[in-house]
Computed example of a mutant assay.
Amino acid sequence: MQSPVRWGILGTARITRRVAPAIQSAPAAKLIAIASRSEEKAKAWAEKYECPQIVESYEQLLERDDVDVVYIPLPPHLHAEWTIKAAQAGKHVLCEKPLALNALEAETMVNACQQAGVCFEEGVMWYHHPRATQIRDILNQGRLGEIRRVTSAFSFPWQSSVEPSEEYRFKQEQGGGSLMDLGWYCVGASLWTLGMLPEEVFGREVLDGSVDESFSGWMRFANGAEAAFDCSRNMTSRRWIEIAGTEGSIVCDDFTRPWQEEKTRFWIHDAQGNAEVVNCEAATQETCLIENFSQRILTGQLDNQQSLGLKTQQVMDRLLKSAKSKRNENEF
């Protein structure tokens, strides 16, 4: 396959406002077409993001010979269906998180892409920022000693012009809830840091209707390390992580997305409390993701990231099961 990799997008979800410009600015990518079931929305979107082609249906986009990869920003309950259809059509797939409603669905998606010989990845962008590479290098160098605990939080006060009845994040059957929407980043970051699945998990949810408005989780790993997190859509904006070892710690107060792209940084604290600020290369993480995924397609690296997404989904299932099984315990 020759560069640039040709991209199509299924739907005009809000996240495409960031991803479309990223495709336009990534050297190895080119935006070809947008598919939407609303012609009016598609026309407005295509004009705003300079997309040359409008396709009336998702099926028609998958049939196009001039599209190599599809980005799927649809609600989670549609991810499995359209990932499998895209793979069967020979398209590489970048799928938004959460990957699916559960781990079984996620496994079918991964298997379909493996059988079709196409690239598949979850759309978590911070993994691709240069800052993540710097943090990984420090962990690999052993500067923190033995990692003992990962603590993280992701929350924001929900404000949207979309009615709750029309928003999938408020519907359990469509993959809603703060754990699936926000906790995914915290769980994934813990697995990314420690490189293994937990042996034990505990979850605690605060419900709003059928979905969790807030969620707290804890994980214990075979090497004795622990991870704890909380996520919420009724709290002030927080997106921080601490990775603590026997000889030092890393603190990042905006790991899911830099508060300011031009001031991307994190801190290293030694055992005596001395803090070192590590300034990072300024970059747009959406563009980094699109470029890295496009390069994977060009070089044939098929299974680079799919295992982390699948493992994250597996842990999410266990956390939700824990929260529901303990819902009525310890009540006064």
Rank of each mutant, 00 (worst) to 15 (best):
H129Y: 09
A227Q: 12
V187K: 14
W267P: 06
W218Y: 08
S165D: 03
I138S: 15
P98H: 05
F170Y: 14
Q301T: 10
T246R: 04
K324W: 01
E200N: 03
G245P: 06
L191A: 07
E39Q: 12
L191P: 05
E163M: 01
G248M: 09
T236M: 03
M109Q: 15
E286R: 00
V277T: 13
A106D: 12
W184P: 05
D68W: 05
E121F: 01
L310T: 08
N279D: 14
D212V: 00
E286A: 07
L94A: 10
H269T: 12
G309S: 06
F202K: 11
A44R: 08
R37Q: 11
I250M: 04
K321T: 12
F332C: 03
R18T: 02
E81K: 07
E40K: 15
H128R: 03
K311T: 00
A323E: 05
I34M: 08
T83Q: 09
E50A: 12
C51Q: 02
P98N: 00
G183M: 07
C113D: 08
A228Q: 13
S216R: 10
Q134Y: 00
G177T: 05
E167C: 01
A29K: 02
W7T: 12
M219Y: 08
S25N: 14
Q295K: 14
R6D: 07
H77R: 03
L31M: 14
I268T: 04
S25D: 04
V315C: 14
P76A: 14
C288Q: 15
I290V: 15
S160V: 01
F120I: 10
L104A: 08
E47N: 10
E276P: 00
L179N: 13
W158D: 02
A283W: 09
V5D: 07
S155T: 13
L320A: 08
E242V: 14
A103V: 09
G123W: 00
N140Q: 11
D303I: 01
H79D: 03
N328Y: 11
P157I: 01
I290K: 08
I72D: 01
Q134L: 13
M180Y: 06
E107C: 04
V67D: 13
R239E: 08
F120N: 02
S249W: 07
